[in-house]
Lab assay of single mutants.
Amino acid sequence: CHSECLGNCSQPDDPTKCVACRNFYLDGRCVETCPPPYYHFQDWRCVNFSFCQDLHHKCKNSRRQGCHQYVIHNNKCIPECPSGYTMNSSNLLCTPCLGPCPKVCHLLEGEKTIDSVTSAQELRGCTVINGSLIINIRGGNNLAAELEANLGLIEEISGYLKIRRSYALVSLSFFRKLRLIRGETLEIGNYSFYALDNQNLRQLWDWSKHNLTITQGKLFFHYNPKLCLSEIHKMEEVSGTKGRQERNDIALKTNGDQASCENELLKFSYIRTSFDKILLRWEPYWPPDFRDLLGFMLFYKEAPYQNVTEFDGQDACGSNSWTVVDIDPPLRSNDPKSQNHPGWLMRGLKPWTQYAIFVKTLVTFSDERRTYGAKSDIIYVQTDATNPSVPLDPISVSNSSSQIILKWKPPSDPNGNITHYLVFWERQAEDSELFELDYCLKGLKLPSRTWSPPFESEDSQKHNQSEYEDSAGECCSCPKTDSQILKELEESSFRKTFEDYLHNVVFVPRKT
C-alpha cells in the first residue's frame, strides 16, 4: 500500500485506493498535508475557505447554543480562536489581540433580562453583547459592586439597553466600559436606550469621564423622579442622539420631579488639616426662599486615587461607600458681607490618608415646582503625618564578641513616609551569675543571650482551647457569634421535631 494509506488498500502504491488515510483526505486521495488554498479540518480532512465560511455563517444565523462559528488559524479551520487571539470578521482569520481579548457573548432569543446578581454573573467577562440587555433589578445585597464585577467589562451592545423598574439602582456607572450601543435591534418605538419607572436612579454616568455613542435609535425617559433633566440632556449631547427624540420621548413632568437638581456650584473657602482632623468651610448658599434650606450634607471617604465619582458603590438597598454628615444651616444675616460661612470639623480620621470630599445642599421643593440647590466639586484632601507606631517583631542576635545583629519589621501604621529608623542602645553591667558559677561542674549549661522565638506554653494553649472559665478566673470563653447562636437554635429545633416524629412513629394507638 501507499505510504499515506492506513489499515489496508485495494490497489498497491495508489493513494486513492486506501481504506483510511494516515494524515489527511483531499478529493478522494490521501495526502501528507493540505496544500494551499485548503485548510486542515478536524485533523483528517482538507477543506477550502468557502466550506469553513459556510459553517461560520450557519452557526451565526441559527443562534443555536453550542454550535461553533468556525475560524481560520495556522492553516486550520477550527471552532474558535485560541487564547490571546480574536477573529477578523472580513476573512475569519485569528489575529493577536492588542491588550485583553474581546469576548463576544451571543444571547438566546436576542435579549437577556438581568433581574438578579445570579443572572448578571452569566455575563461575567463579556466585552461584546450580541443582542439586547434588559435591566430589571428590584433589590439585593452589595448590588453596585456585584454588577460592576460582572457587567463592568461590557464595551458594546449590538441591540438596545433597557432599564425598567430597577428600584435598587442609583447610577449606571457599573457599566464602566460601555462605549457603544449599535441599535441594530430596537425596542418598540425605535428606541435604543429605554429608561422607565426607576424610582431611585439619580445618575446615568459621570459624563466628564465617560463617552457613549448610540449609532441608531432614540432615547426614552419616563417616570424617573430623581433623575434630573440636565442629566438626560447631557446624554443626548454626548451620545449623538440630540435631535432624534420626539416631543413625548422625554417626559418633562415625570423626570426629576422629586430630585434636588443642583444648578449652582458650592466653593470651599477654608481648608485646614491635622493628622486626624480636617476643618472645612464653604461659601454660604440661600435659595430664593431661605426657609427652603434644610441644611447641608457632607460626604467623605478614603480615596487612594483621584478618580472618585459621587455615586460609586451606591445602591438604593443601603450600600453606600460614603460617610454622610448632616449639618444645620448657619444663622442668616441681613448683611451679605457678614454672612457666616458654614463648615464642619471632621474628626477621627487616619493620618497621612487622602480623602475625597464634597458637600451639597438639602432643600425642600418650592411652590413653583422649581428645584434649587448647590453642590461642590469633589475635592481631595490629605491629612498630615504623625509619629508612626512601633516597629514590629524586633530580633537581636550576637554573632561574635563585638557585634549584635538587630532586625525588625516595619510598623503596622507608618502614618507617613518613613525615611529612617533611630536605634538606641545602652551598655549593661555583666551578670554576677557568670562569676559565681563553678565551671568545672559536669552538665553545666552556660547562660545564653542568643534570641529564641517566643512560644506559647501548654497552660496558655489549654486556656485558649477551654470553653469555660478556669477556677483562677484568668480566662473566659469568647462570646458566641450570631451565626453560632442561630445554628444552635436550628439544631435544637431539629432535635425537638425529630423526637416528636419518633414518638408518633414508635407509639401507635392500640386498636379498641
Rank of each mutant, 00 (worst) to 15 (best):
H106R: 04
L107V: 09
G110S: 12
K112T: 04
T113I: 06
I114P: 01
I114S: 01
S116G: 15
T118P: 12
A120Q: 03
A120V: 08
A120R: 02
L123A: 04
T127A: 03
T127P: 04
T127E: 00
N130S: 00
N130L: 13
G131D: 01
G131K: 01
G131A: 04
S132L: 00
N136Q: 01
I137F: 13
I137N: 03
G140L: 14
N141K: 12
N141Y: 15
N141S: 10
N142W: 04
N142D: 10
N142C: 02
L143M: 15
A144W: 02
L147S: 02
L147K: 00
N150S: 11
N150L: 04
L151N: 00
L153P: 07
L153S: 11
I154C: 04
E155P: 00
E155T: 05
S158I: 13
Y160D: 01
L161A: 02
L161M: 07
L161Q: 00
L161F: 05
L161T: 02
K162G: 13
K162P: 00
I163F: 10
I163C: 07
Y167K: 15
Y167I: 13
A168L: 00
A168T: 14
A168P: 15
L169K: 00
L169R: 00
L169A: 12
S171P: 00
S171V: 02
L172M: 14
L172W: 00
S173N: 12
F174H: 06
F174L: 09
F174Q: 01
F175E: 00
R176Q: 14
K177Y: 09
R179C: 14
R179E: 09
L180R: 09
L180F: 12
I181L: 07
G183T: 02
T185V: 14
T185L: 09
L186H: 15
E187F: 12
I188Q: 04
I188R: 14
I188E: 08
Y191C: 04
Y191F: 05
S192Y: 01
F193E: 00
F193R: 00
F193M: 12
Y194L: 07
Y194K: 12
A195R: 00
N198R: 00
N200D: 07
N200R: 07
L204H: 01
L204Q: 01
L204G: 04
W205A: 02
W205L: 04
W205P: 01
D206H: 04
W207L: 06
W207R: 02
K209N: 11
H210K: 13
N211F: 04
N211S: 12
L212S: 03
L212I: 07
I214C: 08
I214Q: 03
T215S: 11
K218A: 12
K218V: 14
F221V: 11
Y223Q: 08
P225L: 06
K226R: 08
K226E: 08
L227C: 08
C228M: 03
C228L: 04
L229V: 15
I232C: 08
H233P: 02
K234A: 05
K234H: 13
M235V: 04
E237N: 14
E237M: 11
V238C: 15
V238A: 07
S239K: 05
G240R: 10
T241P: 08
T241D: 12
T241W: 10
K242W: 12
G243A: 06
G243R: 07
G243T: 11
R247W: 12
N248P: 09
N248L: 10
D249E: 15
D249N: 10
D249G: 10
I250V: 13
A251S: 08
A251R: 06
K253V: 09
T254L: 11
T254H: 15
T254E: 05
N255T: 09
G256V: 07
D257L: 10
D257T: 00
Q258V: 12
A259F: 06
S260E: 07
S260I: 12
C261S: 03
E262N: 13
E262F: 10
E262W: 05
N263M: 04
E264Q: 11
E264G: 06
L266G: 01
K267C: 09
K267I: 14
K267G: 06
F268P: 01
F268T: 01
Y270R: 05
R272V: 12
T273V: 15
T273G: 04
S274Q: 07
S274A: 04
S274D: 14
S274W: 04
F275M: 12
D276G: 09
D276V: 01
L279H: 15
L279D: 02
L280C: 04
E283V: 13
E283N: 12
W286V: 04
W286K: 08
P287A: 04
P288H: 08
P288W: 10
P288T: 09
D292T: 09
D292S: 07
L293V: 05
L294K: 12
L294G: 14
G295H: 12
G295A: 15
F296K: 00
M297D: 06
L298N: 00
L298P: 00
F299L: 10
Y300R: 04
Y300N: 08
Y300C: 15
K301M: 13
K301I: 12
E302A: 14
E302C: 08
Y305R: 09
N307D: 07
T309R: 05
E310W: 06
F311A: 15
D312S: 08
G318K: 04
S319V: 08
S321F: 10
S321G: 05
S321N: 15
S321P: 03
W322R: 01
W322K: 00
V324A: 10
V324P: 03
V324E: 15
V324G: 04
V325C: 14
V325L: 12
D326S: 05
I327S: 02
I327P: 01
I327L: 04
D328M: 09
P329R: 12
L331V: 12
S333A: 04
S333M: 06
N334C: 05
P336I: 03
K337T: 13
Q339D: 14
Q339T: 07
Q339W: 06
Q339I: 12
Q339C: 11
H341I: 10
H341A: 11
H341W: 09
H341V: 07
H341E: 10
G343M: 13
L345T: 09
L345H: 06
L345A: 02
M346S: 03
R347M: 06
G348S: 13
L349R: 01
K350V: 05
P351R: 05
T353V: 08
T353P: 00
T353G: 01
Q354G: 13
Q354C: 01
A356V: 01
I357S: 01
I357Q: 00
K360W: 15
K360I: 08
S366L: 01
D367A: 03
E368M: 11
E368R: 15
R369S: 07
R370Q: 06
T371R: 08
T371I: 15
G373I: 03
G373S: 03
S376G: 01
D377V: 10
Y380S: 02
V381P: 06
V381S: 03
Q382W: 07
D384L: 09
A385E: 09
P388V: 15
V390D: 04
P391L: 05
D393L: 07
P394I: 11
P394H: 03
P394M: 09
V397K: 15
V397H: 13
S398V: 04
S398M: 02
N399H: 06
N399G: 08
N399C: 08
S400M: 07
S400F: 05
S400A: 14
S402C: 03
S402F: 10
I404S: 03
I404L: 01
W408K: 00
W408M: 01
P410V: 04
